[in-house]
């Protein structure tokens, strides 16, 4: 009877994601760089151009727990849309193996491409009604810079990570990463293509660690 109960509890545990079982957390703040201005759209040879100021995208950081965690069994799907000639979101952290869809929400063509070593692709020109939504699977860790072949000012970033434990800070740099597994790890804060800060952390179940990245 006792053995049967143990089997049941093991079976239940195996279908609950590990993140729900883990209970350690890290919170803190990342010192973000100064906000940079919105891009300037070159529209010299467009006979017709809509007016409008492109939105400023405030600097954000990605905080993640580094380690070799298993890849997801089924590929998660995320989206980076093109709306009002910008990428939304402008920064997307994902786990290796994630499929990212690139829906076009504008009434004009977009042509998303990347020459980054972590993922080289070119989706060609496609409109809003394009089905299936053009997508790519990101199977190599690294930083992928997204651009549009038609709208030179458009920039987006996908940070492909080996870990399922990550988040984007708020615009003040604050973060709280919860549901982490117990153990000794390195916590990293990706700030831009040249700046990643790191700190070793000892995570214990039921504890919340405070870590700042000055």
């Amino acid at each position: 009877m006792c053995r049967l109960g143990l089997m049941w509890s093991n079976a239940i545990l195996s279908i609950i994601p590990a993140s729900l079982l883990a209970s350690a957390a890290v919170e803190g703040r990342v010192e973000l760089p100064k906000s940079h201005g919105a891009p300037v759209q070159a529209k010299r040879y467009e006979i017709v151009t809509k007016g409008g100021v492109l939105s400023t995208q405030p600097p954000l950081a990605v905080v993640y727990l580094d380690g070799n965690f298993p890849r997801p069994v089924s590929a998660p799907v995320k989206q980076v849309a093109q709306k009002d000639l910008t990428f939304i979101p402008a920064l997307l952290p994902i786990q290796v193996g994630t499929r990212v869809e690139f829906p076009n929400l504008d009434d004009t063509y977009h042509n998303i491409f990347s020459y980054s070593p972590a993922k080289r692709f070119d989706l060609g020109r496609y409109r809003a009604e394009e089905r299936p939504i053009p997508s790519e699977v990101f199977d190599k860790p690294g930083l992928v810079t997204l651009r549009c072949d038609i709208h030179e000012h458009m920039r987006g970033l996908i940070l492909v990570l080996n870990t399922p434990y990550f988040l984007i800070t708020d615009t003040e740099g604050r973060f709280r990463l919860s549901g982490l597994p117990e153990g000794h790890y390195t916590l990293r804060a990706w700030i831009d293509s040249r700046t990643t800060r790191e700190k070793p952390v000892d995570l214990k179940n039921g504890q919340t660690l405070h870590v700042d990245f000055p």
Partner: peptide, 8 residues
């Protein structure tokens, strides 16, 4: 951000 200029 109301006045923006870019050299390229």
């Amino acid at each position: 951000d109301n006045l923006r200029a870019r050299l390229s």
